[in-house]
Simulated scan of single mutants.
Amino acid sequence: MSLLIDKRELKKAAKELTLVKLTEVIETLNGVLAERQQEVELIAQLEQMAKAQGYTLEQLGYKQSSDVVVADSSEGSGRKRPVKPKFKTINKGSQFFYVENGQLQLLRTHTMKKGLQQRGIQVVPLAKVDKKFAKDIDKLIAEATVQAVENFNAKVTIWNEWAAANGGEILEKR
């Protein structure tokens, strides 16, 4: 029903438009379109510069306008309770690995597994890793453990800020 009303209103508005008004509307729309095109080009340049320097736009503080609107509306109602972090130990025996570009890689998330397999990359458990890559296994596990501790500590910081303000349990960093 609303679609029919919208069509009627558009037809009514189109009849009322004179050639001069129509020209003004087209000029205004072209101006807006040109501004948007400049913004798109500028964002593309920023993305290229950020990638060249090894950053993402989110790390530099750029957010999509829809993200900003959501963030502004949630701040008014108070900060949302973060998820309480749990440290997950990395057990060497239960890890999966894959070889890409001649290098052994640790499977970080199991959601990657299907995508890798679709690309023709074989994902194998620790027991089936080729012996020539055996020396890389401990290094990959150590790097993953360091990253897991950093991620956990960052989540603990966020949790502790919320807990201090809301009377929650204060957690220890690792």
Rank of each mutant, 00 (worst) to 15 (best):
Q103L: 07
W159N: 08
P125A: 06
Q95L: 13
S74H: 12
Q64R: 14
E58F: 00
Q118G: 05
A134F: 11
G76W: 03
L33D: 11
Q53G: 02
G115H: 05
E100K: 02
L33A: 15
Q103Y: 03
W159A: 06
V129Y: 08
P82M: 06
R108I: 10
L107Q: 07
Q105L: 01
K7V: 12
N166A: 01
Q122F: 00
Q105F: 01
R174F: 12
Y98L: 04
S66A: 15
S65P: 07
G93V: 02
S77F: 12
E9H: 03
L19H: 08
A71Q: 12
K135C: 06
E161R: 11
T89S: 08
Q59G: 11
R81K: 15
K88D: 11
L29R: 04
K12Q: 14
I141A: 04
R36Y: 09
K135P: 05
N160R: 04
G168Q: 10
Q122G: 03
A44C: 06
K88R: 12
P125K: 02
F97E: 04
V146E: 15
A144H: 05
W162S: 12
Q95G: 02
G61W: 03
A142R: 12
A50D: 11
L42G: 09
V146L: 14
F152M: 07
V146R: 14
E169R: 00
V25E: 01
K114S: 15
L57D: 06
A52L: 08
I43F: 13
Q95F: 01
W159F: 06
Q38V: 09
E39M: 13
T89D: 12
T56K: 08
A163I: 04
Q147L: 08
W162A: 01
V83H: 05
S74D: 09
G168S: 01
L60A: 03
Y98H: 04
V99Y: 04
Q64C: 05
T56R: 07
R108T: 08
Y55V: 01
L140H: 04
K21Y: 00
A148K: 07
K135R: 10
Q59V: 10
D130H: 05
E100N: 02
R8M: 13
R79F: 07
G61I: 10
L140W: 06
V123R: 02
A71E: 15
E35V: 10
T145L: 05
E24T: 03
I170N: 08
E24F: 00
D130S: 14
S77H: 05
